[in-house]
């Protein structure tokens, strides 16, 4: 029986810029930051209250993972906002929304009461979008 998820990937255009976004703007903690040779880096971050979920900020670069020009295609898709990689949770959406906005996070939807949740939408520095919901 599967019990939990401990790693998940988000594809980003630039790991330095993603580090700044996820750590300095969203307030995530760096879990592992390992140089893996020239131009390669393994970088994972965790939401502050979820230290056992490592989010790998995976650079989209031509290589083993993206071959034959697929990196460019993937980068274009990410930039266009094709991918929504998840739903984050906070205790107070209005306060978190104001704080993240003040830190420079771009929201594409202000806090709105929907049928299923009180939620807002924001984009990361690459173009990936996320829902941010309030947990009651």
């Amino acid at each position: 029986m599967i019990t939990k998820m401990n790693h998940v990937s988000i594809f980003v255009l630039n790991q330095d810029s993603a580090y700044d976004f996820y750590v300095n703007k969203l307030g995530f903690k760096v879990h592992t930051d390992a140089p893996m040779g020239p131009g390669a880096r393994w970088l994972t971050v965790c939401p502050p209250e979820q230290p056992d979920l490592e989010i790998s900020l995976m650079a989209i670069e031509e290589g083993m993972m993206f071959k034959n020009g697929t990196a460019k295609h993937m980068r274009d898709l990410v930039k266009q906002g094709t991918f929504g990689f998840g739903v984050f949770e906070c205790k107070n959406l209005l306060a978190t929304y104001e704080e993240l906005k003040a830190r420079g996070v771009e929201f594409t939807k202000a806090p709105t009461k929907e049928f299923y949740a009180f939620e807002a939408l924001f984009k990361d520095d690459s173009g990936n979008w996320f829902s941010l919901g309030e947990r009651n």
Binding site: T32, A34, P35, M36, W42, M58, G63, M64, M65
Partner: peptide, 20 residues
């Protein structure tokens, strides 16, 4: 330990996909 053996900190599926 991270500098000496970074692969000990990376799930193998990712390391393999990356060609590490």
């Amino acid at each position: 330990a991270l500098i000496q053996n970074p692969l000990h900190f990376i799930p193998n599926c990712f390391a393999e996909k990356k060609g590490w």
